[in-house]
Amino acid sequence: MPFCFLVLKVFPYPINITTVQFAVGTTISLFMWATGILKRPKISGAQLLAILPLAIVHTMGNLFTNMSLGKVAVSFTHTIKAMEPFFSVLLSAMFLGELPTPWVVLSLLPIVGGVALASISEASFNWAGFLSAMASNVTFQSRNVLSKKLMLKKEASLDNINLFSIITVMSFFLLAPVTLLTEGVKVTPTYLQSAGLNLQQVYTRSLIAAFCFHAYQQVSYMILARVSPVTHSVGNCVKRVVVIVTSVLFFKTPVSPINSIGTAIALAGVFLYSQLKRLQPKPKAA
């Protein structure tokens, strides 16, 4: 995440950066299939059609995150993304019929309030960065809900790692033409040198960011297959704390007392939400 932020500050083309991330992820996936490290799945046309909506929201989620990172501080982007449980509850109720308990709904109030408090006191605040991070919440939680519906079908030939790999490849082919039609290809040596950028530095940081991005999301899918969604949510809460604190220290981001309080309230709300979800009765199997 820090490397991606550093690149976006000198190279403000989030669509190009996101396409590079998917290109690296696609290369890794194809290498794993070609070498047999990962068993190549037998995928039908019907399965690809079912995965397409996942790939679309996955593409949009990562693009919106990079757009936000290019506009505001890393710590602020992740403070806004602490609102993921709010959208998770909303979308799960709409598409999966999972109605939350009143206590779970009440636990969302400190999350929303904390993010609002942090937003009004954020030095780097701008609407483009804020709305991009919020859009990332919506698209990523849509991906999770759609993934859950697909996983419930228990397709024997498609495990979670292969599912993520296929989503990554599809995302690359979805975003590549968008890049050509909007920003154009800006990652060529000729363009970077004409912009006065350090070629080796931009490429090195971009590739490290892309590799870390793919590895993190793949590991996240692997963990999700082994633990409950609640445990996964608690882990995400801890991740937010680590990312926010380290980014503030690494980038020396100025943080006001009110901003710190708002961030702390939001993260405490996420943890409370996770614990209350653990206590929520599981729906009986039909």
Rank of each mutant, 00 (worst) to 15 (best):
L38F: 00
L38I: 02
L38A: 01
L38M: 04
K39G: 12
K39Q: 15
K39L: 13
R40M: 08
R40A: 02
P41E: 03
K42Q: 12
I43D: 06
S44D: 02
A46P: 00
A46F: 07
L48M: 08
L48C: 05
L48K: 05
L49C: 09
A50I: 00
A50W: 01
I51Q: 05
L52S: 12
L52Y: 04
L54M: 09
I56M: 06
I56Y: 00
V57A: 03
T59I: 01
T59R: 02
T59V: 03
M60P: 07
M60S: 14
G61I: 09
G61E: 12
G61T: 11
G61W: 10
L63D: 09
F64H: 00
T65V: 11
N66C: 06
M67D: 02
M67Q: 10
M67K: 10
S68M: 06
S68E: 02
G70P: 10
K71V: 06
K71M: 12
V72P: 10
V72G: 04
V72F: 07
S75T: 05
S75D: 06
F76V: 05
T77I: 03
H78W: 15
H78A: 14
I80V: 15
I80G: 07
K81C: 13
K81R: 15
A82T: 14
M83G: 03
M83R: 00
E84M: 15
P85H: 09
S88G: 15
V89E: 10
V89K: 04
V89N: 07
L90P: 08
L91I: 07
A93P: 05
A93K: 12
A93L: 14
M94R: 01
F95A: 13
F95L: 13
L96S: 02
L96A: 01
L99K: 14
P100H: 00
T101W: 04
T101R: 11
T101I: 04
P102C: 08
V104K: 05
V104Q: 11
V104P: 03
V104C: 02
V105A: 12
L106F: 14
S107K: 02
S107C: 11
S107L: 03
L108C: 14
L108Q: 11
L108E: 14
